[in-house]
Amino acid sequence: NRLGIIYEIQGMKAVVLTSEGEFLIIRRRKDMKVGQQVSFENEDIYNV
């Protein structure tokens, strides 16, 4: 599992900021809110 803070939500995608200072786009889940810490898997990351 990886951890990140939700920075922005766009439709079915969420932008998270990881503890390494990396911004990633992941698959959104219904319970996500901006500012929330979430765990996610590598499979949830969109390749940009």
Rank of each mutant, 00 (worst) to 15 (best):
E20M: 12
L17V: 12
L17F: 13
G35C: 14
Q10I: 15
I5V: 12
S39V: 14
G4A: 05
G11F: 07
S39N: 15
I25Y: 06
E8H: 09
D44F: 05
V16R: 00
R2A: 07
D44C: 05
N42F: 12
I26A: 01
V48M: 08
G11D: 11
Q36F: 12
Q10T: 05
M32R: 01
K13Q: 06
F23G: 01
L17I: 07
I45H: 04
V34K: 12
F23R: 05
I9W: 03
Q10P: 01
E8Y: 07
V16N: 00
R27N: 13
L17T: 06
I6H: 00
Q36A: 07
S39W: 10
K13N: 13
E22M: 12
Q36N: 11
E22C: 13
S19Y: 09
T18C: 06
E41H: 11
K33N: 10
E8P: 00
I25S: 08
R28W: 15
S39C: 15
G35S: 03
T18E: 01
Q10L: 06
R27V: 08
Q36Y: 09
N42Q: 14
K33E: 15
G21R: 02
Q10G: 08
V15K: 12
Y46V: 09
I45V: 08
Y46E: 07
Y46Q: 13
E43D: 14
F23E: 07
Q37D: 06
G35M: 05
E41S: 14
E8S: 14
Q37H: 13
V48Y: 02
Y7V: 12
V16F: 01
R29D: 07
S19K: 14
N1A: 12
A14M: 12
E20W: 02
V38D: 00
I45K: 04
E41Q: 13
Q36V: 07
V15D: 01
E20L: 09
R28V: 15
G11C: 08
K30H: 15
D44R: 02
E43A: 06
T18N: 02
Q10H: 14
I45L: 11
N47K: 03
R28H: 15
N42V: 13
G11L: 11
R29T: 12
I6R: 00
R27D: 06
T18Y: 02
S19G: 04
D44P: 10
L3S: 11
G35Y: 04
Q36H: 12
I9R: 01
Y46T: 12
L3W: 12
N1P: 09
I9S: 01
K13V: 07
L24A: 09
Q37L: 10
F40S: 02
I9C: 08
I45G: 06
N42R: 10
Y46M: 11
N42W: 15
D31W: 07
V38R: 02
S39G: 03
L17H: 09
E43W: 05
I25C: 15
I26E: 00
I45T: 02
S19P: 10
N47F: 06
N1V: 14
D44I: 04
R27P: 10
F40K: 01
L24I: 11
Y7S: 06
F23L: 10
G4V: 03
M12E: 15
F40G: 01
E43S: 09
I5R: 10
A14N: 01
K33P: 01
S39F: 08
A14F: 06
S19M: 14
N1S: 08
Y7N: 06
E8M: 09
V38G: 00
M12K: 13
K13A: 09
A14I: 10
Q36T: 09
F23K: 11
I45M: 04
I26N: 00
N47H: 14
E20Y: 05
V34Q: 05
L24C: 09
R2N: 06
R2E: 04
V15C: 12
Q10W: 11
R29Q: 08
R2Q: 08
A14E: 00
G11K: 08
M32V: 03
I25D: 09
I5L: 07
G21K: 06
L3E: 10
I9N: 01
R27I: 15
R29W: 09
Q10Y: 09
V48Q: 15
Q10C: 12
D44W: 06
